[in-house]
């Protein structure tokens, strides 16, 4: 029973990261219809920016996190402008290929600048808490709490503020939004900035727990896509629920069946769901 609770806790922790990253991806993929396959790599870049802000410039954990969010929001705007905007009216697959170009640049860039070896961010909250027989490090608990706060804030931003509703308007009808005087280019930049900024926050929160390496983005990017499709394209609740589900599948599958094959469960789940419903669990028909 203790083991079970421990796995659940780990699953929720993993799921928190997945949920935030998938949330950012669903904004650009589901709403702007850009298959930002480099999303995981931007997440990786976020972890690296924090790491070097902390080790080289001796900043604390929280200032580093904010710098990372800011830098990555800028990076997101640049990537959208250079990589995706010229391909806006072309088939998805062209953007997808362009994204592969972007992710190669990002991954190699990090290797060239900071080296291929893995690093660990010093853990700011190493203490542990015992609860119901589970051992939780404070950092993991903090990650779960911060994830929830971020999800709630994003939800408020999208539903209650003017820029947020503008994003939704563009998602529903691009031409209509333009006629209403919404600057679609600016909305695209804004959405990208939010998407990559939140990814950077998630990456920084999780970095003290796992190692950071240039290759960490690839698998996470794929998983984020799985979650977005699992939850239904463009569906924000879908991305959140999907993120936690995937985290739990991995933690339980890895803990009880086989740790070697834990990633297979995630990918297998997607294949299974697409086999049953080609547009995802909560997905609408895609054009």
């Amino acid at each position: 029973m203790d083991l079970f609770l421990q796995q659940i806790f780990n699953g929720v922790m993993l799921g928190s990261t997945y949920a935030i990253v998938a949330l950012g991806l669903t904004l650009v993929f589901g709403i702007l219809h850009i298959p930002n396959f480099a999303h995981g790599h931007l997440y990786m870049l976020g972890a690296y920016v924090s790491f070097f802000a902390m080790t080289r410039y001796g900043l604390g954990f929280w200032p580093a996190l904010f710098i990372s969010v800011f830098v990555l929001a800028l990076a997101g705007v640049v990537v959208e402008f250079l990589v995706y905007r010229p391909l806006r009216d072309q088939p998805h697959i062209n953007s997808f290929i362009s994204a592969i170009g972007a992710l190669i640049i990002l991954e190699t860039g990090v290797v060239v600048i900071w080296g291929p070896q893995a690093h660990r961010i010093p853990n700011p909250y190493p203490g542990t808490i015992e609860l119901l027989g589970m051992t939780m490090t404070q950092q993991r608990l903090l990650l779960i709490i911060v994830a929830i706060i971020m999800i709630v804030l994003l939800q408020i931003f999208i539903k209650k503020t003017t820029p947020g509703t503008a994003i939704e308007a563009v998602a529903q009808n691009r031409e209509g939004a333009m006629l209403m005087g919404i600057n679609v280019n600016r909305i695209s930049s804004l959405t990208f900035a939010i998407s990559t900024g939140t990814a950077a926050a998630a990456a920084t929160m999780v970095a003290p727990i796992f190692m950071i390496s240039p290759a960490m983005g690839a698998l996470l990017g794929m998983k984020a896509f799985i979650i977005v499709i699992l939850g239904g394209l463009g569906s924000i609740p879908g991305a959140i629920v999907g993120g936690y589900i995937l985290g739990l599948i991995e933690a339980l599958g890895g803990g009880y069946i086989s740790a070697d094959y834990k990633d297979v469960f995630a990918f297998g789940a997607l294949l299974l769901i697409l086999a049953i419903k080609p547009t995802g669990l909560f997905g609408r028909e895609v054009a």
Partner: peptide, 16 residues
């Protein structure tokens, strides 16, 4: 299963 999906969905499903 995968060829029932289209566009990016197919790309991601096959990548998986």
């Amino acid at each position: 299963p995968t060829l029932r999906t289209r566009g990016s969905y197919f790309a991601i499903a096959t990548l998986c």
